[in-house]
Design a protein around this nucleic acid. Structure first.
Lengths: 248, 248
DNA sequence: GGGAATCCTTGACGTAGATCAAATCCACGC
DNA sequence: GCGTGGATTTGATCTACGTCAAGGATTCCC
């Protein structure tokens, strides 16, 4: 996907030249100019670790295109991914010195970064940036708690279905709607990265994907390209008592 | 524990008559008066459900004394606790209509509640309340992500040790320090509530507690009263590469 | 085209923790 | 003191998922 596509499809704020829903949905023109003055872009390749846990972070950033993970590693190597970052998602905590997690690009990735010090000053002058950050953080907290239910109580099959549903939903938001609850997308994660996010092994991930394919819940073309013929069926498999409200 | 003890030991803001770290650490006297005007207390018994997921919530609140859980339940009854609330913790999201989780008192509980509408208005006039809320939410997000590592990758024994370490740390903050890394506290949770928080069954919880006792990591008096002779040993069992920095 | 590096799939088998089923403990009311 | 009911412990067995191992598929580079 090109940057232009993101600019075209991401939720935008009208006047903002970079259109970060993250920070500028309610920005005035002069605030946008201030943001522009402290921003810079960085791009990364799939597989690259952008930030190591414990690193000093002198910027905050939002994802322009691509997907990244937030990952924790125990001393003995056990790995758990604690967050997925899609375009428009925000990384970094104002007021924090050091990164708490590894941030890893799982696809080619473009980030829009803001130097932390001036960003914090701008926050001080511009209350709605802080408000927006609070909203986003609360949303992330909800997502983390939903994932806790998945990690603690769902079966391997339900976990895979849940992940596919979420990736599809986030990805499809960037594309035109397909007819009749159908959904088509590319998995932005390797089997191993999926396993680390779901608290499984990559073998179990592979087996369950094969099973969902055998049962007609999904279709696969290659290893990454997924077609979901019936999104509601997928949600049932995910064990969500949730809405299913994506395709109304 | 009495309310007076909480008032005495909880982080306080000096001038605040109710001493909620949650909302008033930086409040001016007139702001405290405004908070006082919209607050009311509610008390609950152990086991009571304060709020059902989906209920309309017309207040936000902070815990004065006791412990509560935030719990998600799937259609088929599988249950996952996604948060533990100790004294000074905050519940409720400004700008949200309905509760996303069941809130259950696991001990007798006293809450200090603020009517939501006026609380939001006060937030609008008083930026540091929003800032404080952002900080607290970010802390909760960190805690949720640490718990994701636990749920996804830790063994049953490590899960139990982690829970004991956290409960001990929170509880001990309210009491005088014991000599030489020793720690004494009462578990505020039944075995079943522990299981729901750890993604285990109550039988496994019971077995692992017995094992930790047999191995001398903890001592038990009755079912609830725990003595940890060596906190660092407990942290090792928890598999945390963390500091261990509670008893410096 | 070949080989080699990744990534993925599939099979055989082992095990941590779940499930099912009794006890046992303990607080509380009478 | 005595029964009653919930909470907990413990044992026996089962199973979903992990572990180990052996191929495929795809891409990239020479």
């Amino acid at each position: 996907m090109t940057i232009l596509e993101v600019l075209h499809t991401a939720p935008s704020c009208g006047t903002c030249p970079i259109r970060h829903r993250a920070v500028c949905a309610r920005c005035e023109t002069d605030e946008l100019a201030a943001l522009d003055a402290i921003k810079f872009y960085r791009s990364f390749e799939a597989g690259q670790t952008l930030i190591w846990a414990g690193d000093r972070m002198d910027f905050v950033a939002s994802v322009v295109s691509g997907v990244a993970t937030l990952t924790q590693v125990m001393e003995d190597g056990r790995t758990q991914t604690v967050g997925l970052l899609f375009p428009s998602d925000f990384v970094g905590r104002p007021g924090r010195e050091r990164a708490p997690y590894n941030v890893i690009a799982t696809t080619d990735l473009l980030m829009c970064c803001f130097r932390k010090k001036p960003f914090e000053e701008l926050m001080g002058r511009t209350p709605h940036i802080g408000q927006r950050l609070l909203e986003m953080t609360l949303d992330e907290l909800d997502a983390a708690r939903e994932w806790m239910l998945l990690l603690g109580r769902k079966t391997a099959r339900e976990k895979i279905a849940s992940l596919l549903a979420i990736v599809g939903r986030r990805d499809a938001a960037l594309h035109l709607r397909k007819p009749q609850g159908q959904m088509v997308f590319d998995l932005p994660l390797t089997r191993e990265a999926m396993a680390d996010y779901l608290g499984l092994t990559l073998e179990t991930v592979s087996r369950q994907i094969s099973a969902l394919k055998r049962d007609g819940v999904i279709e696969l073309e290659g290893k990454r390209h997924v077609t979901v013929p019936d999104y509601n069926r997928l949600l049932e498999e995910a064990g969500d008592d949730a809405d299913g409200g994506f395709f109304g």
